[in-house]
Amino acid sequence: MSHNSPSIDRRSILRGSLTVAGAVIVLPALGSLAGCSSAPASLDPHKQMIASIVERIMPATDTPGAIDAGVPDYIANVFADFFTAEQQNEFVVGLDDLASSLSASGSDFASMSAEEQDRALTAVDQGDYGAAGRAQWQQLRDLTIFGFYTSEEATQELAFEEIPGRYDGCASLSEVGSAWLNRGV
């Protein structure tokens, strides 16, 4: 066995490339090599887990949470409209990794109690950036925060004025009461 043997992992196959001694080789027939169908990647198998995770990231309190704010639909829209087929595949593979990390205790994430879910997510959140599923967690976390605070429901959480009509550069924070809901982009 040579030291230069191709390093193959599932993710690089799904990206359609192999790394051989530093050089990237583009694979011609992705589906057959990866042993999976050529059907487009789907979020459906992870729907429940995504819904559970986003609600733990931005939970309903005395104001709406991520589910109320339609964050799962927002993420599904980004997945469907903004991701290339390759990114969709990577995203789903990443979710597989994240699911494995989160169910290390043996139970399925969606069926855990909220406390168990928070413990599992904290372990990933605080864990090594290179750990399996960590990158996916970050992406999901950021999409959730963005999706939540750009939703109409977030106007119940943060101060919002569609037409302020005036500018005060030295307002009292206690009078404003909370952070302003800015537009995000």
Binding site: R56, I57, M58, P59, T61, D118, L121, D125, Q126, Q138, R141, D142, I145, F146, Y149, E157, L158, L173, S178, A179, W180, L181, N182, G184
Partner: peptide, 23 residues
């Protein structure tokens, strides 16, 4: 800064929501 300061960072849940309630 408002809520966008949380993007790319760590933390989640009620604690984060509470933190982001303030600038």
């Amino acid at each position: 800064a408002s809520w966008t300061r949380a993007l790319g960072g760590k933390g989640f849940g009620e604690e984060l929501k509470k933190e982001l309630h303030q600038p």
